[in-house]
Design a protein around this nucleic acid. Structure first.
Length: 109
DNA sequence: ACAATGACCCAGT
DNA sequence: AACTGGGCCATTG
């Protein structure tokens, strides 16, 4: 393992991601906004993609704004992610999409 | 230090 | 409904 070096950005991202309660999901844009970077949802995805804290950060609870899962998700792919989420209480649409109206968690309001 | 890449989002056509 | 372009930021080679 290398030195765990993370930026403030990553730190916030992980913090928020970890804050997502079980049975809820969140979107990259939401995390980006909550972190104070608004439009940098990309960086969020990137940071989570590298995911130096894989076991600590529930990146599987993070979906895109469409409610779909990330296409290149690691750790076995989307199937694994979907299974995990279903096991946590998330329900998927027939298209393999999450009902954000019911399961999206808002960090601050 | 630079250039390229990426698990994104929004608006316009 | 589908495609294109623009925008923001971090990580990696």
């Amino acid at each position: 393992m290398k030195n765990v070096k993370i930026s403030k950005f990553a730190e916030k991202v992980y913090k928020f991601t970890k804050k997502i309660p079980k049975g809820k999901v969140s979107t990259y844009g939401q995390i980006a906004k909550a972190s104070g970077y608004g439009k940098s949802s990309r960086a969020v995805g990137n940071t989570l993609h590298k995911n130096p804290f894989a076991p600590v950060v529930p990146c599987h609870r993070v979906v895109n704004s469409n409610g779909f899962l990330a296409k290149n998700f690691g750790s076995g792919g989307i199937k694994s992610q979907q299974k995990l989420l279903e096991s946590e209480g998330i329900v998927f649409d027939i298209s393999g999409k999450v009902d954000l109206n019911k399961f999206q968690y808002f960090f601050k309001e």
